[in-house]
Computed example of a mutant assay.
Amino acid sequence: MTNHHQPTRGEPRVALVTCAALPDLEDDDRLVVAPLAARGVTAVPVVWDDPAVDWAGYDLAVLRSPWDYMPRRDEFVAWAAAVPTLANPAEVIAWNTDKRYLDELSAAGVPTVPTAWVTPGEEWELPGEHGEYVLKPSVSAGSQDTGRYDLADPEHRDLAREHVRRLGAAGRVTMVQPYLSAVDTAGESALLFLAGPGGLAFSHAIRKGAMLTGPDLGVDGLYKPEAITARTATAEQLAVAEKTLAAVPGGPDRLLYARVDLIPGADGSPVLVELELTEPSLFLGYADGAPERLAEAILTHLTSRI
Rank of each mutant, 00 (worst) to 15 (best):
T146M: 04
L151P: 01
A90Q: 11
L22V: 11
W48Y: 15
L299F: 01
I306P: 12
R39W: 02
D59V: 05
V273E: 12
L105D: 13
V183C: 06
A258P: 12
L36E: 01
G218W: 10
G285P: 04
T2D: 10
D24R: 09
W48C: 06
T229W: 10
S203E: 02
D261Q: 12
Y58W: 15
V139K: 01
T8N: 13
L63K: 00
L16F: 10
G289C: 07
D27T: 10
A56L: 00
L63D: 01
D103W: 05
M1I: 03
E75A: 14
L217Y: 07
W79D: 02
A233G: 08
A295R: 00
V14Q: 06
L16C: 08
L105V: 11
K208T: 10
A295Q: 02
S140L: 06
V110E: 09
W117N: 01
D261I: 11
W55M: 12
R293A: 09
S143W: 02
M1G: 13
T300R: 07
A247F: 12
R231L: 09
R165G: 00
K208G: 09
P51Y: 09
L222V: 14
R73F: 11
L126W: 07
E276P: 08
L275W: 09
L135C: 12
R9C: 05
T232W: 05
P127F: 03
T174V: 10
D59F: 04
A235G: 14
V240Q: 02
M70K: 00
L60Y: 05
V118S: 05
D145W: 03
I263S: 04
M1N: 07
Y101L: 11
R293N: 00
F202C: 03
W79M: 13
E296Q: 12
T278I: 02
H156A: 14
S65H: 10
P66H: 07
L126I: 04
S143D: 00
V110Q: 02
A186E: 12
P12D: 08
D74G: 05
P197S: 15
A107D: 15
Y101E: 04
E242G: 03
S269I: 01
I93L: 14
G218P: 04
T229Y: 10
L60T: 06
I228H: 08
A266G: 13
V83N: 07
P35Q: 05
T278K: 06
E129D: 15
R305G: 06
V271Y: 03
A81I: 06
P197E: 15
L245M: 11
E11R: 15
S65I: 01
G198N: 14
I298E: 01
D29V: 04
V271E: 07
Q144G: 13
P127K: 01
E236P: 01
A170C: 08
T2E: 12
A235D: 15
R231G: 01
L284I: 08
M70H: 08
T85L: 08
Q177D: 13
G109F: 13
R13T: 13
P23N: 04
Y101M: 10
P215E: 06
G147A: 04
P12K: 08
L135Q: 07
R73G: 09
D28L: 11
G214R: 03
I298R: 02
T300N: 11
V113D: 06
S269T: 15
A258D: 02
I263Q: 03
F283I: 03
G285Q: 07
P270M: 11
R73K: 11
